[in-house]
Design a protein around this nucleic acid. Structure first.
Length: 761
DNA sequence: GAGCGATTAATTTTT
DNA sequence: TTAATCGCTC
């Protein structure tokens, strides 16, 4: 063990050693915030505080995991296992799992993700005979979510004049009814959505004083990470939990508040000093991460915001490189430019792939970068986007698991009662739903003791069979049985198409993760619980399965992610892309100062991710809904002082489009314009042959030149196998061949420009 | 009740 | 451009 107090600067040390009473740590970007938090926890424990009495709340699983690990390291023993460190959602879910019966929920309540919640809303809107074009599920969910995060339940919603006015203005008079129905349906289903985990936690603490007392007793010290991102519900819960001892430590940076769309209010951090007497305030302003140039630019940019806690970030790091600004013609050029730059940096400065991150405003922007990186054979990883758990086949499987654990849940029942197809149609299901509504029962209660339909009865018996395993078998055994006897796995196994194979693999992956869960020893102090219910609860709060897998720092890949998900991370080289008006700042936030300032904070977060080199790029025009639109340079670009900018660094637009390649990157860049549609075409072909057998290409498969092909020739196609060219039509640039691939595929029209065909000699 | 082709709607950020 | 939904046919 080493002396953990060593290597702290003065304000850091003060923050660590402050013992009792409220403390607020204003931690600028890269100022060692996590270090302070973890050292503080270690310090408390070294000085007699039991790990069981410390609660630390974060926003992401990753942050929680990192904190736990670092405390452990600082302590040199495994006591850190007993800490309550986790996300707001996971810690509250854990508590609710114990206390839920008090609120009328089963302890095995289901946790709904956004898709599940939208599904429920959609049904409600339909049932109320409302127009779902006007009452869009996503909009409604946002509205309900905002209400819950503001601790406004359905009853309060109905009488809140500001809310009512807004709904009236947008012509959505039935919002309160929908909110009400949604709440009831979730309750009936024994399900909570993400926001409920906060809302119900609050309800629990305010309704049952004994429960409140219990947790106040348990948590002697409460620490909150990213306090600037807390919403009213979180704020209130923290206040309740810490009310007795007031040993509350909040860490945050108002300049990095970027989650107001999720109900976060910067006010929480701005007013912390008013909430408690004698608040100790510590400011961490020394940045250990970035070069001077980067820090200067960041300070300059954020200086354009009006409201902030006064502070100035500084660093003793070296001056570093200037910020490189590049403008390209299109979004695809932007992709090429970035891939080129990465390749060049690697050649010249020996950076590894993992030293680079590409940060964008919206997930939709990732496409161009993925394509160009793939073309250049630069390995990359996309963070965010469609998560593993949102894939259809995985969701179906999970729906089975969830239904078996909680049969109250109508959503999951509806989802899988006919998956795989067993002849139970929509009409049949609707019949049970209306019967359930009529008798104030759940659908399961209607059908569990005989439904009058042999197919449905068979289904019920099957689910009951699975249920009987819950007590005695672990999560994996139950899940395996479910996959086997429901026919789910068999159905996927028999689908030999490319997609079918991928789906089968995904399901195997899911089973692997369940197996891993059952085989990982529980942490000390926790109940040994390897049941299916325990597994489900754990994964419902995980956005990405890969996040838990091994040391991802070790994977040498370029990282692509939104700026939001990059918060808290750092990279030697960062590309902040898409700096265009209406994109960044987003058109959604251009109308008021608060929105614009949040976008600027987002830009600030992006800039401060960079340690050594920073690129800022944008495109004159980009595809949106399939049409090319022109955008102006973002106003944020102009907020970067010229003194720190290297504008001479030119992007793809200044290079001859198809002319002789310039330098290393140009050489690797040659065939860009032809290739991009290949994958799409392949995807299309794959879809159209979804039910047919897939051909395995010969080992020596190479695409031959289309110009050499003529009628009567035998060719091999990667998917359709061997065939004979029957017809040739179209001009030189658009030759289409009619090829007979024999039984199974028949005659296909193949565009020779795109398809890869090998001439069989 | 299932499968297919045609129409249309969508892009802000996420636990 | 793409994904999802709608509506038609078997």
């Amino acid at each position: 063990m080493y002396n953990y107090l060593e290597g702290l600067n003065e304000p850091q040390r003060v923050a660590v050693e402050h013992r009792d009473g409220p403390i607020m740590i204003i931690a600028g970007a890269g100022s060692g915030k996590t270090k302070v938090l973890t050292t503080r926890i270690a310090h408390l424990m070294k000085n007699g505080v039991d790990a069981f009495n410390i609660l630390a709340l974060t926003f992401t699983n990753k942050a929680a995991a990192e904190m736990k690990e670092r405390v452990e390291k600082a302590l040199g023993n495994s006591e850190a296992r007993n800490l309550y460190i986790g996300t707001f959602h996971s810690i509250f879910a854990r508590i609710l799992r114990v206390e839920a019966p008090k609120l009328g929920y089963p302890s095995n309540f289901t946790i709904y993700d956004t898709d599940d919640a939208k599904g429920v809303i959609k049904d409600i809107v339909k049932q109320m005979n409302l127009d779902d074009k006007h009452y869009k599920p996503a909009y409604i969910l946002n509205r309900i979510s905002a209400a819950k995060n503001g601790l406004i339940g359905p009853a309060a919603y109905r009488v809140d004049s500001a809310i009512q006015m807004e709904d009236a203005k947008s012509q959505r008079h039935r919002m309160a009814d929908i909110y009400d129905a949604y709440t009831n349906q979730c309750f009936k289903n024994g399900a909570m959505d993400f926001d409920d985990l906060l809302f119900k936690m609050h309800t629990l603490l305010t309704t049952f004083s004994d429960v409140l007392a219990k947790y106040q007793q348990r948590f002697h010290y409460v620490l909150i990470d990213e306090y600037q991102d807390t919403n009213a519900a979180q704020y209130s819960i923290i206040k309740l939990l810490g009310a007795v001892r007031e040993n509350i430590c909040v860490v945050g940076d108002d300049a990095q508040s970027i989650y107001s769309f999720r109900g976060a209010t910067v006010q929480n951090i701005l007013q912390f000093q008013d909430d408690y007497d004698d608040v100790k305030v510590v400011k961490l302003e020394q940045n250990y991460r970035s070069s001077q140039n980067i820090i200067n630019v960041a300070n300059n940019v954020i200086g354009n915001n009006q409201h902030q806690i006064p502070k100035e970030l500084w660093t003793s790091n070296k001056e570093g490189e200037k910020i490189m600004l590049a403008r390209t013609m299109t979004d695809n050029d932007e992709g090429k430019f970035v891939a080129d730059a990465i390749k060049e940096m690697q050649m010249r400065n020996h950076y590894a792939n993992k030293d680079f991150a590409i940060l964008y405003r919206t997930n939709a922007q990732s496409r161009a970068f993925e394509e160009s990186l793939r073309r250049m054979n630069i390995p990359y990883k996309l963070y965010g986007g469609v998560s593993f758990y949102q894939r259809k086949e995985v969701k179906d499987y999970l729906a089975y698991l969830r239904l078996v654990v909680n049969t109250r849940d109508e959503e999951n029942l509806k989802r899988i009662i006919n998956v795989p197809a067993r002849g139970i149609g929509n009409t049949t299901v609707l019949k049970y739903i209306s019967a359930a509504n009529e008798h104030q029962r759940t659908v399961w209660e209607i059908i569990e003791n005989g439904s009058g339909n042999p197919k449905v009865d068979g289904f019920v018996q099957m689910i009951k069979g699975f249920q009987s395993m819950l007590e005695s078998k672990n999560a994996y055994d139950v899940a395996f049985a479910i996959g086997k006897y429901s026919g789910l796995v068999a159905e996927l196994y028999n689908d030999k198409t490319v997609e079918g194979l991928a789906r089968y693999e995904n399901v195997q992956e899911l089973l692997n993760s369940i197996k891993e869960f059952t085989e990982t020893p529980d942490e000390e102090g926790e109940i040994l619980d390897k049941s299916l219910g325990s597994y489900l609860q754990q994964i419902s709060l995980q956005t990405d399965v890969e996040n838990n897998k091994g040391k991802e720092e070790d994977i040498d890949v370029v990282k692509l992610m939104t700026i939001h998900s990059a918060k808290g991370l750092e990279f030697p080289c960062v590309f902040v892309v898409g700096l265009e008006e209406t994109l960044f700042p987003s058109s959604m936030s251009l109308y008021d100062r608060a929105g614009l300032e949040e976008e600027r904070r987002l830009f600030y977060v992006a800039i401060t991710r960079a340690k050594e080199r920073l690129w800022v790029t944008y495109a004159n025009s980009r595809y949106r809904f399939g049409t090319l639109v022109n955008n102006d340079e973002s106003r944020f670009v102009q907020e970067i002082p010229l003194a720190y900018l290297d504008r001479t660094f030119t992007g793809a637009s200044n290079r001859p489009q198809n002319g002789p390649a310039k330098g290393v990157s140009g050489m690797l860049n040659q065939n860009f314009d032809k290739v991009p549609s290949l994958k799409k075409l392949a995807d299309k072909l794959a879809t159209s042959t979804a039910s047919q057998k897939v051909h395995t290409p010969s080992a020596d498969f190479t695409a031959d030149d289309a110009g050499d092909m003529s009628i009567g020739m035998k060719v091999e196609h990667q998917k359709f196998g061997f065939g004979t060219i029957l017809t040739l039509e179209g001009g030189a640039n658009n030759r289409i061949a009619g090829i007979d691939f024999g039984e199974g595929h028949g005659v296909k029209k193949i565009m020779l420009n795109y398809a890869k065909l090998k001439i069989v000699k």
